[in-house]
Design a protein around this nucleic acid. Structure first.
Lengths: 181, 181
DNA sequence: CGTTGCAATGCAACCCGTTGCATAGTAGGC
DNA sequence: GCCTACTATGCAACGGGTTGCATTGCAACG
Protein backbone atom coordinates (compact mmCIF):
# COMPACT_ATOMS: atom_id res chain seq x y z
CA UNK A 1 0.00 0.00 0.00
CA UNK A 2 0.95 3.55 -0.62
CA UNK A 3 3.68 3.25 -3.18
CA UNK A 4 3.47 7.03 -3.08
CA UNK A 5 5.27 7.32 0.20
CA UNK A 6 7.78 4.64 -0.67
CA UNK A 7 8.77 6.69 -3.70
CA UNK A 8 8.82 9.85 -1.64
CA UNK A 9 11.32 8.31 0.76
CA UNK A 10 13.35 6.96 -2.11
CA UNK A 11 13.48 10.42 -3.67
CA UNK A 12 14.45 12.01 -0.37
CA UNK A 13 17.37 9.62 -0.19
CA UNK A 14 18.35 10.37 -3.76
CA UNK A 15 16.61 12.49 -6.41
CA UNK A 16 16.13 10.34 -9.49
CA UNK A 17 14.27 9.84 -12.73
CA UNK A 18 11.35 7.46 -13.00
CA UNK A 19 13.53 4.96 -14.77
CA UNK A 20 16.22 5.07 -12.10
CA UNK A 21 13.59 4.55 -9.40
CA UNK A 22 12.29 1.52 -11.21
CA UNK A 23 15.78 0.07 -11.39
CA UNK A 24 16.44 0.78 -7.76
CA UNK A 25 13.21 -0.96 -6.85
CA UNK A 26 14.59 -4.01 -8.58
CA UNK A 27 17.52 -3.99 -6.20
CA UNK A 28 17.80 -2.70 -2.66
CA UNK A 29 14.22 -1.87 -1.77
CA UNK A 30 12.77 -4.25 -4.30
CA UNK A 31 13.67 -7.32 -2.29
CA UNK A 32 10.61 -6.68 -0.23
CA UNK A 33 8.70 -4.49 -2.63
CA UNK A 34 8.22 -4.69 -6.34
CA UNK A 35 6.96 -1.97 -8.60
CA UNK A 36 6.97 -1.76 -12.36
CA UNK A 37 7.95 1.36 -14.23
CA UNK A 38 4.31 1.85 -15.15
CA UNK A 39 3.16 2.27 -11.62
CA UNK A 40 6.09 4.47 -10.86
CA UNK A 41 5.48 6.84 -13.75
CA UNK A 42 1.84 7.13 -12.86
CA UNK A 43 2.52 7.74 -9.22
CA UNK A 44 5.17 10.32 -10.07
CA UNK A 45 2.72 12.13 -12.34
CA UNK A 46 0.13 12.12 -9.57
CA UNK A 47 2.59 13.36 -6.98
CA UNK A 48 3.85 16.08 -9.27
CA UNK A 49 0.30 17.29 -9.77
CA UNK A 50 -0.17 17.31 -6.01
CA UNK A 51 3.02 19.32 -5.69
CA UNK A 52 4.90 16.76 -3.61
CA UNK A 53 7.67 16.39 -6.15
CA UNK A 54 9.02 18.44 -9.01
CA UNK A 55 10.53 17.05 -12.19
CA UNK A 56 13.26 18.90 -14.03
CA UNK A 57 14.33 17.96 -17.52
CA UNK A 58 17.95 17.02 -17.64
CA UNK A 59 19.03 17.00 -21.26
CA UNK A 60 20.74 13.67 -21.74
CA UNK A 61 24.49 13.60 -22.06
CA UNK A 62 24.29 10.20 -23.60
CA UNK A 63 20.92 8.66 -22.88
CA UNK A 64 17.67 10.31 -23.95
CA UNK A 65 16.27 13.17 -21.89
CA UNK A 66 15.22 12.20 -18.44
CA UNK A 67 13.12 13.98 -15.88
CA UNK A 68 14.79 14.06 -12.52
CA UNK A 69 12.44 14.34 -9.59
CA UNK A 70 13.12 16.01 -6.26
CA UNK A 71 10.87 16.28 -3.23
CA UNK A 72 9.37 19.70 -2.58
CA UNK A 73 8.79 21.33 0.80
CA UNK A 74 5.16 20.29 0.48
CA UNK A 75 6.27 16.74 -0.16
CA UNK A 76 8.38 16.78 2.97
CA UNK A 77 5.43 17.98 4.99
CA UNK A 78 3.28 15.17 3.56
CA UNK A 79 5.99 12.71 4.43
CA UNK A 80 6.07 13.98 7.99
CA UNK A 81 2.30 13.82 8.26
CA UNK A 82 2.28 10.25 6.99
CA UNK A 83 4.93 9.25 9.52
CA UNK A 84 2.49 10.11 12.27
CA UNK A 85 -0.25 7.86 10.91
CA UNK A 86 -0.64 4.36 12.32
CA UNK A 87 0.19 1.47 9.97
CA UNK A 88 -1.44 -1.91 10.09
CA UNK A 89 0.69 -5.04 9.68
CA UNK A 90 0.49 -6.60 6.28
CA UNK A 91 -0.72 -10.18 6.38
CA UNK A 92 2.01 -12.30 4.80
CA UNK A 93 -0.09 -14.42 2.51
CA UNK A 94 2.15 -16.88 0.78
CA UNK A 95 0.81 -19.48 -1.59
CA UNK A 96 3.11 -22.07 -0.06
CA UNK A 97 1.00 -22.14 3.10
CA UNK A 98 -2.14 -22.76 1.10
CA UNK A 99 -0.43 -25.52 -0.84
CA UNK A 100 0.65 -27.17 2.36
CA UNK A 101 -2.92 -27.36 3.55
CA UNK A 102 -4.01 -28.47 0.10
CA UNK A 103 -1.41 -31.23 0.11
CA UNK A 104 -3.50 -33.04 2.72
CA UNK A 105 -5.89 -33.90 -0.13
CA UNK A 106 -3.14 -35.07 -2.45
CA UNK A 107 0.30 -36.58 -1.98
CA UNK A 108 2.22 -34.34 0.42
CA UNK A 109 5.48 -35.70 -0.93
CA UNK A 110 4.79 -33.85 -4.17
CA UNK A 111 5.67 -30.63 -2.38
CA UNK A 112 9.17 -31.76 -1.43
CA UNK A 113 10.82 -30.28 -4.50
CA UNK A 114 8.93 -27.03 -4.20
CA UNK A 115 9.77 -26.52 -0.54
CA UNK A 116 13.40 -27.32 -1.16
CA UNK A 117 13.45 -24.83 -4.02
CA UNK A 118 12.01 -22.17 -1.75
CA UNK A 119 14.45 -23.01 1.00
CA UNK A 120 17.32 -22.49 -1.41
CA UNK A 121 15.88 -19.18 -2.62
CA UNK A 122 15.55 -17.82 0.88
CA UNK A 123 18.98 -19.06 1.83
CA UNK A 124 20.45 -17.27 -1.15
CA UNK A 125 18.70 -14.02 -0.32
CA UNK A 126 19.93 -14.33 3.20
CA UNK A 127 23.46 -14.65 1.89
CA UNK A 128 22.97 -11.54 -0.24
CA UNK A 129 21.72 -9.56 2.72
CA UNK A 130 24.63 -10.68 4.84
CA UNK A 131 27.00 -9.59 2.09
CA UNK A 132 25.37 -6.14 2.01
CA UNK A 133 25.56 -6.04 5.79
CA UNK A 134 29.29 -6.74 5.77
CA UNK A 135 29.98 -4.34 2.92
CA UNK A 136 27.86 -1.33 3.88
CA UNK A 137 27.04 -1.54 7.54
CA UNK A 138 30.14 -2.38 9.53
CA UNK A 139 31.71 0.28 11.68
CA UNK A 140 29.98 3.37 13.07
CA UNK A 141 26.79 4.46 11.35
CA UNK A 142 25.18 7.87 11.09
CA UNK A 143 21.47 8.27 11.71
CA UNK A 144 20.35 7.49 8.18
CA UNK A 145 22.66 4.51 7.88
CA UNK A 146 21.55 3.15 11.24
CA UNK A 147 17.91 3.26 10.19
CA UNK A 148 18.60 1.67 6.83
CA UNK A 149 20.52 -1.03 8.62
CA UNK A 150 17.58 -1.74 10.85
CA UNK A 151 15.43 -2.31 7.78
CA UNK A 152 18.03 -4.65 6.34
CA UNK A 153 18.08 -6.50 9.63
CA UNK A 154 14.40 -7.26 9.27
CA UNK A 155 15.18 -8.80 5.90
CA UNK A 156 17.89 -10.91 7.48
CA UNK A 157 15.64 -12.05 10.28
CA UNK A 158 12.80 -12.96 7.95
CA UNK A 159 14.97 -14.87 5.53
CA UNK A 160 16.47 -16.75 8.45
CA UNK A 161 12.99 -17.60 9.64
CA UNK A 162 11.98 -18.73 6.18
CA UNK A 163 14.97 -21.01 5.66
CA UNK A 164 14.53 -22.60 9.07
CA UNK A 165 10.84 -23.13 8.56
CA UNK A 166 11.37 -24.64 5.11
CA UNK A 167 13.95 -27.05 6.52
CA UNK A 168 11.53 -28.07 9.25
CA UNK A 169 8.79 -28.52 6.67
CA UNK A 170 11.02 -30.77 4.57
CA UNK A 171 11.46 -32.95 7.62
CA UNK A 172 7.71 -33.16 8.14
CA UNK A 173 7.03 -34.06 4.51
CA UNK A 174 9.60 -36.85 4.61
CA UNK A 175 8.08 -38.02 7.85
CA UNK A 176 4.61 -38.17 6.35
CA UNK A 177 5.96 -40.16 3.43
CA UNK A 178 7.55 -42.70 5.75
CA UNK A 179 4.27 -43.00 7.61
CA UNK A 180 2.32 -43.73 4.44
CA UNK A 181 4.52 -46.61 3.39
CA UNK B 1 -2.53 -14.13 -5.27
CA UNK B 2 -4.91 -16.77 -6.43
CA UNK B 3 -7.63 -16.51 -3.88
CA UNK B 4 -9.22 -19.17 -6.06
CA UNK B 5 -7.00 -21.91 -4.78
CA UNK B 6 -7.14 -20.71 -1.22
CA UNK B 7 -10.92 -21.04 -1.35
CA UNK B 8 -10.62 -24.41 -3.04
CA UNK B 9 -8.50 -25.71 -0.15
CA UNK B 10 -10.84 -24.18 2.36
CA UNK B 11 -13.78 -25.93 0.71
CA UNK B 12 -11.94 -29.23 0.61
CA UNK B 13 -11.41 -28.96 4.34
CA UNK B 14 -15.05 -28.10 4.88
CA UNK B 15 -17.86 -27.42 2.38
CA UNK B 16 -19.39 -24.06 3.20
CA UNK B 17 -21.45 -21.15 2.02
CA UNK B 18 -19.85 -17.94 0.80
CA UNK B 19 -20.76 -16.26 4.02
CA UNK B 20 -19.20 -18.99 6.14
CA UNK B 21 -16.01 -18.79 4.09
CA UNK B 22 -15.85 -15.07 4.66
CA UNK B 23 -16.21 -15.60 8.39
CA UNK B 24 -13.58 -18.29 8.45
CA UNK B 25 -11.20 -15.99 6.58
CA UNK B 26 -11.64 -13.56 9.43
CA UNK B 27 -10.36 -16.20 11.83
CA UNK B 28 -7.97 -19.05 11.20
CA UNK B 29 -6.69 -18.45 7.71
CA UNK B 30 -7.41 -14.75 7.82
CA UNK B 31 -4.53 -14.02 10.12
CA UNK B 32 -2.29 -14.11 7.13
CA UNK B 33 -4.87 -13.58 4.45
CA UNK B 34 -7.83 -11.29 4.29
CA UNK B 35 -10.69 -11.45 1.86
CA UNK B 36 -14.00 -9.65 1.89
CA UNK B 37 -17.26 -11.36 1.16
CA UNK B 38 -17.36 -9.53 -2.15
CA UNK B 39 -14.25 -11.15 -3.51
CA UNK B 40 -15.35 -14.48 -2.18
CA UNK B 41 -18.75 -14.39 -3.85
CA UNK B 42 -17.22 -13.34 -7.13
CA UNK B 43 -14.55 -16.01 -7.01
CA UNK B 44 -17.11 -18.64 -6.06
CA UNK B 45 -19.27 -17.63 -9.04
CA UNK B 46 -16.26 -17.88 -11.33
CA UNK B 47 -15.23 -21.24 -9.96
CA UNK B 48 -18.74 -22.60 -10.25
CA UNK B 49 -18.83 -21.56 -13.89
CA UNK B 50 -15.51 -23.32 -14.42
CA UNK B 51 -16.98 -26.40 -12.77
CA UNK B 52 -14.49 -26.52 -9.90
CA UNK B 53 -17.19 -26.22 -7.26
CA UNK B 54 -20.90 -26.80 -7.09
CA UNK B 55 -23.36 -24.86 -4.99
CA UNK B 56 -26.45 -26.47 -3.55
CA UNK B 57 -29.26 -24.46 -2.04
CA UNK B 58 -29.88 -25.35 1.56
CA UNK B 59 -33.20 -23.94 2.62
CA UNK B 60 -32.56 -22.14 5.86
CA UNK B 61 -33.86 -23.63 9.06
CA UNK B 62 -33.45 -20.35 10.78
CA UNK B 63 -31.27 -18.07 8.71
CA UNK B 64 -32.07 -17.15 5.10
CA UNK B 65 -31.29 -19.64 2.33
CA UNK B 66 -27.63 -20.30 1.82
CA UNK B 67 -25.74 -21.93 -1.03
CA UNK B 68 -23.33 -24.53 0.23
CA UNK B 69 -20.37 -25.16 -2.04
CA UNK B 70 -18.47 -28.40 -2.44
CA UNK B 71 -15.45 -29.15 -4.59
CA UNK B 72 -16.09 -31.25 -7.70
CA UNK B 73 -13.80 -33.90 -9.15
CA UNK B 74 -12.69 -31.30 -11.68
CA UNK B 75 -11.88 -28.95 -8.85
CA UNK B 76 -9.76 -31.60 -7.18
CA UNK B 77 -7.85 -32.14 -10.38
CA UNK B 78 -7.25 -28.41 -10.69
CA UNK B 79 -6.04 -28.34 -7.10
CA UNK B 80 -3.61 -31.14 -7.81
CA UNK B 81 -2.36 -29.44 -10.95
CA UNK B 82 -1.77 -26.20 -9.06
CA UNK B 83 0.17 -28.03 -6.36
CA UNK B 84 2.72 -28.96 -8.98
CA UNK B 85 3.28 -25.39 -10.09
CA UNK B 86 6.18 -23.44 -8.63
CA UNK B 87 5.32 -20.52 -6.33
CA UNK B 88 7.37 -17.40 -5.96
CA UNK B 89 7.91 -15.92 -2.52
CA UNK B 90 5.76 -12.93 -1.75
CA UNK B 91 7.78 -9.83 -0.94
CA UNK B 92 6.73 -8.78 2.55
CA UNK B 93 6.27 -5.09 1.94
CA UNK B 94 5.39 -3.42 5.18
CA UNK B 95 4.91 0.31 5.47
CA UNK B 96 6.82 0.30 8.75
CA UNK B 97 10.07 -0.33 6.89
CA UNK B 98 9.44 2.59 4.59
CA UNK B 99 8.64 4.80 7.55
CA UNK B 100 11.85 3.84 9.25
CA UNK B 101 13.84 4.98 6.26
CA UNK B 102 11.69 8.07 6.01
CA UNK B 103 12.31 8.87 9.66
CA UNK B 104 15.89 9.77 8.75
CA UNK B 105 14.45 12.98 7.26
CA UNK B 106 12.31 13.76 10.28
CA UNK B 107 12.55 13.02 13.98
CA UNK B 108 13.04 9.28 14.36
CA UNK B 109 11.72 9.47 17.90
CA UNK B 110 8.28 10.16 16.45
CA UNK B 111 8.12 6.50 15.45
CA UNK B 112 8.55 5.21 18.99
CA UNK B 113 4.85 5.00 19.71
CA UNK B 114 4.08 3.37 16.41
CA UNK B 115 6.75 0.70 16.74
CA UNK B 116 5.68 -0.06 20.28
CA UNK B 117 2.09 -0.37 19.09
CA UNK B 118 3.17 -2.82 16.42
CA UNK B 119 5.29 -4.78 18.86
CA UNK B 120 2.28 -5.21 21.10
CA UNK B 121 0.09 -6.29 18.19
CA UNK B 122 2.53 -8.95 17.08
CA UNK B 123 3.05 -10.13 20.63
CA UNK B 124 -0.69 -10.52 21.03
CA UNK B 125 -1.04 -12.50 17.83
CA UNK B 126 1.80 -14.68 18.93
CA UNK B 127 -0.05 -15.38 22.15
CA UNK B 128 -3.18 -16.28 20.17
CA UNK B 129 -1.25 -18.67 17.98
CA UNK B 130 0.34 -20.30 20.99
CA UNK B 131 -3.10 -20.74 22.51
CA UNK B 132 -4.35 -22.44 19.33
CA UNK B 133 -1.22 -24.57 19.34
CA UNK B 134 -1.84 -25.77 22.87
CA UNK B 135 -5.55 -26.30 22.30
CA UNK B 136 -5.57 -27.99 18.89
CA UNK B 137 -2.16 -29.41 18.19
CA UNK B 138 -0.87 -31.27 21.21
CA UNK B 139 -0.70 -35.03 21.10
CA UNK B 140 -0.46 -37.16 17.98
CA UNK B 141 -1.61 -35.59 14.73
CA UNK B 142 -2.95 -37.17 11.57
CA UNK B 143 -1.68 -36.08 8.20
CA UNK B 144 -4.06 -33.16 7.75
CA UNK B 145 -3.53 -31.93 11.29
CA UNK B 146 0.24 -32.18 10.94
CA UNK B 147 0.20 -30.05 7.81
CA UNK B 148 -2.10 -27.46 9.35
CA UNK B 149 0.17 -27.34 12.36
CA UNK B 150 3.15 -26.65 10.13
CA UNK B 151 1.32 -23.63 8.69
CA UNK B 152 0.52 -22.41 12.17
CA UNK B 153 4.16 -22.81 13.08
CA UNK B 154 5.13 -20.39 10.36
CA UNK B 155 2.76 -17.89 11.92
CA UNK B 156 4.38 -18.43 15.29
CA UNK B 157 7.88 -18.04 13.88
CA UNK B 158 7.02 -14.88 12.00
CA UNK B 159 5.28 -13.24 14.92
CA UNK B 160 8.25 -14.08 17.10
CA UNK B 161 10.54 -12.50 14.55
CA UNK B 162 8.36 -9.43 14.37
CA UNK B 163 8.20 -8.87 18.12
CA UNK B 164 11.95 -9.32 18.48
CA UNK B 165 12.68 -6.98 15.63
CA UNK B 166 10.31 -4.34 16.98
CA UNK B 167 11.95 -4.52 20.38
CA UNK B 168 15.36 -4.10 18.79
CA UNK B 169 14.06 -1.18 16.75
CA UNK B 170 12.74 0.51 19.88
CA UNK B 171 16.24 0.29 21.30
CA UNK B 172 17.69 1.88 18.22
CA UNK B 173 15.20 4.73 18.21
CA UNK B 174 15.92 5.51 21.85
CA UNK B 175 19.59 5.35 21.07
CA UNK B 176 19.26 7.84 18.25
CA UNK B 177 17.35 10.18 20.50
CA UNK B 178 20.10 10.08 23.12
CA UNK B 179 22.63 10.84 20.42
CA UNK B 180 20.75 13.89 19.24
CA UNK B 181 20.62 15.51 22.65
C1' DC C 1 24.67 1.04 -42.94
C1' DG C 2 21.33 -1.87 -40.85
C1' DT C 3 20.24 -4.47 -36.82
C1' DT C 4 20.20 -5.34 -32.17
C1' DG C 5 20.07 -3.65 -27.48
C1' DC C 6 19.28 -0.64 -23.86
C1' DA C 7 17.85 3.87 -21.59
C1' DA C 8 13.78 6.40 -20.84
C1' DT C 9 9.01 7.51 -21.13
C1' DG C 10 4.37 6.65 -21.88
C1' DC C 11 -0.74 4.79 -23.42
C1' DA C 12 -4.46 1.39 -23.03
C1' DA C 13 -6.74 -2.51 -21.27
C1' DC C 14 -7.58 -5.75 -17.99
C1' DC C 15 -7.98 -7.95 -13.43
C1' DC C 16 -8.22 -7.85 -8.60
C1' DG C 17 -9.31 -5.93 -4.28
C1' DT C 18 -11.81 -2.39 -1.70
C1' DT C 19 -15.77 0.41 -0.45
C1' DG C 20 -20.32 1.71 -0.31
C1' DC C 21 -24.76 0.47 -0.84
C1' DA C 22 -29.00 -2.64 -1.24
C1' DT C 23 -32.03 -6.40 0.04
C1' DA C 24 -34.48 -9.94 2.53
C1' DG C 25 -35.42 -12.80 6.26
C1' DT C 26 -35.12 -14.08 11.14
C1' DA C 27 -34.39 -13.28 16.12
C1' DG C 28 -34.43 -10.63 20.17
C1' DG C 29 -35.05 -6.29 23.04
C1' DC C 30 -38.04 -2.51 24.73
C1' DG D 1 -45.51 -4.02 17.16
C1' DC D 2 -41.26 -1.55 16.00
C1' DC D 3 -36.35 -1.15 15.93
C1' DT D 4 -32.02 -3.09 15.94
C1' DA D 5 -28.82 -6.70 14.91
C1' DC D 6 -27.20 -10.51 12.47
C1' DT D 7 -27.21 -13.98 8.55
C1' DA D 8 -26.70 -14.28 3.73
C1' DT D 9 -26.27 -12.63 -0.83
C1' DG D 10 -25.36 -9.45 -4.31
C1' DC D 11 -24.56 -4.92 -7.57
C1' DA D 12 -21.76 -0.90 -8.93
C1' DA D 13 -17.89 1.94 -9.00
C1' DC D 14 -13.35 3.15 -8.04
C1' DG D 15 -8.40 2.61 -7.57
C1' DG D 16 -4.11 0.05 -7.79
C1' DG D 17 -1.31 -3.37 -9.99
C1' DT D 18 -0.09 -6.05 -14.10
C1' DT D 19 0.67 -6.86 -18.94
C1' DG D 20 1.38 -5.73 -23.52
C1' DC D 21 2.58 -2.60 -26.70
C1' DA D 22 4.67 1.79 -28.67
C1' DT D 23 8.16 5.41 -29.17
C1' DT D 24 12.50 7.98 -29.18
C1' DG D 25 17.42 8.23 -28.90
C1' DC D 26 21.98 6.66 -28.46
C1' DA D 27 25.66 3.06 -28.83
C1' DA D 28 27.86 -0.86 -30.31
C1' DC D 29 28.37 -4.87 -33.32
C1' DG D 30 28.95 -7.00 -37.73
Amino acid sequence: MSLDHALLVSLLEKPSSGYALARRFDRSIGHFWQATHQQIYRVLARMEEAGWVKGRLKAGDAAPDRREFTVTALGRREMSRWLGEPTEPQGYRDALMVKLRGAAFDEPVRLLGEVERRRAMHAERLAQYRAIEARDFSGPLDRQRALQYQVLKSGIRFEETWTEWCAETLGLLRDLERRDR
